[in-house]
Design a protein around this nucleic acid. Structure first.
Lengths: 340, 340
DNA sequence: GACTGGCACTCTGTCTTCGGGAGTGCCAAC
DNA sequence: GTTGGCACTCCCGAAGACAGAGTGCCAGTC
């Protein structure tokens, strides 16, 4: 059995009221607050159907109704028109971002901005190395057998790593390595580097090969294989907004989940198309986040995507507003990156 | 009136029991659990004195006693012998730190280690720039008018900043600047650089001076004046351990405080002597942390101190254990830094 | 003078009881 | 298909009762 328009309208009303009041919503209150043009009894019938279909449920007999994950899903997919941002919000974004000095700065400001605008927990992933290209590699000697490898990417990330050499390396050799490494790798996508690095080693004169091999292994290990992702997080205090009720009693599981980079990356990190994505409750596939929803989006200069960002809040969140904000911020950050 | 030995012993017993049970402790339970050698009535008299002196208080009439901030203070200052770490903990530290690859890695592992061992919120400050020396400066051209300035310090930190030039700069000039900047600044304490940078500008040929001035201003502004401090945080989930009761009802204020870098720096960042410092409740001088205590310590290679680290928990925490752990970890990190 | 046992008193936390209120499901009528 | 009516269920808050824990004080003892 399919749902007619009025039933959908009832569902929308339930979601809206519940998000606003945090209390199960009954048939009478519903007809009073919305112009449904029918009586409470009729609404009750509709509710019975909606419940049977799994879109709403009763916390207990003789209580009002509450949307289920599926209900929110339907709401988001079919009953939501994205609100345009208010001018105030638009201004807030601009004001927040004026005068950024580097990538770190961009990321930190973005994450705070997101947390503040959505009043939820915000996560921003640094531009992923695997989607970046090498701009420059630098070798800085620390001692005769140690040097620091610094990589700068076209997305502005700077990564460094200590390289332990098998034996003393004269400055000239370092210099030469530096030249050759840059010649070979500068401008290349990181994803493409493994082969090039191997070639580099092969082309090295046998007497210097151990040293180069050593450098190469660090390059590969740290910059490609370990595929180092970084994150920024802000707004955890917003979790307490609903007075702990939002997350079935304890924040514990949520806070625990937020500490795991792997989990966060999974939440915001699958950057398929450039649309905003919403994951509701169980859809997150993480037990600790059963009662949380995540709105996320990829960002990047122009049409390409280099990283993800998003917010996490209770399933009972203002989806239209949150989606609009996340989308707007992602776009703004992308533009900012394009400028550099 | 001063406190005799038995009264101090009673206070210690109260603190210990309260920390363990989380419940106000009464006279009867006290004599049962500790060998005080006197009757409950006597203990009650002692308690009355301790209360008058402000070391303990009653949540309500006819409830047991709870230590006040002053009580914890006295406990920490005079009644605590630092427990040596258990071999298990010692091993945990070693195991956690094996195979670190760079500074980021050290800091992140340390903060997680601290959180795990103390079961509290941990904070680690990156080695402070102002206490570091320049090891190397690198200039990487991004376009004809832009370059990235990368600074590597002797503590392993790598900072970068975008420099916008007043006009196109030929590669040779960049090269020359790079050489001169390094010549002048390498090996210098960051605190000493401002004068040197100024000299550098003065000694530049007039036609190239605007460019150098531009670089100089970025150097000064970002690396010295803004004195960029960085932090890592872990273990916020541990705040929920006491079931929210620990922090008078809500975690909100605590979480909010933890979001403010400035506050965190203030908590762990005054690195005077190398001793471990304990701040209890109000001593933090931050309203939001009225019911929290902070145990912190400076760390650094050898006797010098380059940064701070610490943990934050409820005033009702295991001080001896926490102090021992923080101290041990700080020392360990210092040694690690000394090796590099 | 310090300690102790006894006792009356106070306060909390918990449990139970009890309506009021909100909301439902069902049914008969329109 | 919609509506008004009605009986039923269940939550929630208030009020009362009660056990338990702890205290302060006092008189007696060493």
């Amino acid at each position: 059995m399919s749902l007619d328009d009025r039933k959908l309208e009832v569902l929308r009303a339930i979601v809206q009221d519940y998000v606003e009041t945090r209390e199960p919503v009954g048939s009478k209150a519903l007809v009073e607050r919305h112009q449904l043009g029918v009586s409470p009894a009729t609404v009750r019938n509709d509710m019975a159907v909606l419940e049977e279909e799994g879109y709403i449920r009763q916390p207990h007999t003789s209580a009002g109704r509450v949307p289920t994950d599926a209900g929110y899903r339907l709401f988001v997919d079919r009953l939501t028109r994205i609100k345009p941002l208010s001018p105030a919000e638009r201004r807030a974004i601009e004001r927040f971002m004026v005068g950024v000095v580097d990538l770190d700065d961009v990321v930190h400001r973005t994450v705070r901005l997101l947390a503040q605008l959505t009043r939820q927990v915000a996560v921003v992933q640094y531009p992923s190395l695997s989607r970046s290209a090498v701009r420059h590699l630098e070798l800085v000697p620390i001692s005769t057998t140690r040097l620091t490898l610094v990589m700068i990417t076209d997305t502005g990330r700077v990564e460094q790593r200590l390289v332990e050499m098998p034996g003393p390396v004269p400055p000239d050799d370092v210099w030469e390595m530096r030249r050759r490494v840059n010649e070979k790798l500068a401008g290349q996508k990181l994803a493409d580097t493994p082969l090039l690095v191997q070639k580099l080693v092969d082309e090295t004169a046998p007497d210097r090969r151990p040293t180069m091999a050593c450098l190469a292994s660090v390059l590969l290990e740290t910059l490609v294989e370990r595929s180092e992702e970084r994150l920024a997080l802000a707004g955890t205090a917003n979790l307490t907004r609903g007075g702990v009720l939002d997350f079935q009693g304890t924040l514990r599981p949520v806070l625990e989940a937020l500490e795991e980079e792997v989990i966060l990356l999974k939440l915001i990190g699958d950057l398929e198309p450039s649309t905003t994505r919403v994951r509701i409750g169980d859809e997150n596939e993480i037990d600790n986040l059963r009662s949380a929803s995540v709105v996320s989006s990829g960002y990047g200069p122009g049409a390409t995507i280099v990283g993800g960002l998003g917010v996490l809040g209770p399933t009972r969140m203002d989806y239209p507003g949150t989606i609009a904000t996340v989308r707007a911020v992602a776009r703004y950050v992308g533009d900012l990156l394009a400028q550099n």
